[in-house]
Design a protein around this nucleic acid. Sequence first.
DNA 1: GTAATCCCTACTAAATTGATAGGAATAATA
DNA 2: TATTATTCCTATCAATTTAGTAGGGATTAC
Lengths: 139, 139
Amino acid sequence: MLSKKTKYGLKALTFIARSEGDLPLQVAEIAKQEQIPQKFLESILLTLRKAGILGSKKGKHGGYYLRETPEDILMTDVMRVLEGPIAMVPCVSLNYYEKCDDCVDEELCSVNKLMLQVRDSTLNVFRNTTLADLSHPKG
Amino acid sequence: MLSKKTKYGLKALTFIARSEGDLPLQVAEIAKQEQIPQKFLESILLTLRKAGILGSKKGKHGGYYLRETPEDILMTDVMRVLEGPIAMVPCVSLNYYEKCDDCVDEELCSVNKLMLQVRDSTLNVFRNTTLADLSHPKG
DNA sequence: GTAATCCCTACTAAATTGATAGGAATAATA
DNA sequence: TATTATTCCTATCAATTTAGTAGGGATTAC
């Protein structure tokens, strides 16, 4: 299952991308428009900012904005920040590889074999989808 | 993350497929060979039997066996039994479709748009992979 | 009738998820 | 400078899920 965190994060990013204004958008407004608990959204946007996907401005009239244009924001990056590793098992993870304790030979392991294919096909989707693709009505 | 249940289930199925004997295999032996807690594996194999993927024989010299040849056992079926719906959100699920409470227009929803693609690509892998593919050293 | 095996139910500890609460720090503006 | 609006940070918490464990009933081979 996709976590609420990721779901909310994607919705928020799309909302910001669609706004296209120069002004930063406030958590309160995004939360209201997208029906997301405000405090929860606050922590999610903070995560996205720390990851370099969003920028922020503090104080009155502050808020969040995209660091790059939607066309340049890849889902690989967004999903890794929000949902964690794309691979479903560490032994097929590109960025967080870890050998299984039990596994004697990875090449013989059926779990490894199957999940490697799933990772590749999912990665292919994320690598070819930008925030712009998700933000346009048709696409 | 892939659950241990699914991981163990896949390993057990592969183990059975590789054995190829006429005799049913016992939980105790599979558990020992694949380093899986026996009682846990028991409940997993029971699930697979109830789903029609495994058959069982009770009593002394009993055990589990495949209901079909490995070539005919598709990962779509196995994964749905072990891990649940393949879609990461109910609104893109083929078999368990459910509309989101909040979502006004699914065609505008970025989460829907992205997860639909992920579902399709994952489904494509599972539909084209059989237990036989996972059981052979090369493949 | 005994031993080996699957079958079934119930319970539990640990981790994760989806929040909520409270306030500190910062910036605009009157 | 005081006020207000906002992000930033830490801590806490309830519900759910996961990964098992425990105990014994039912069935079959021998």
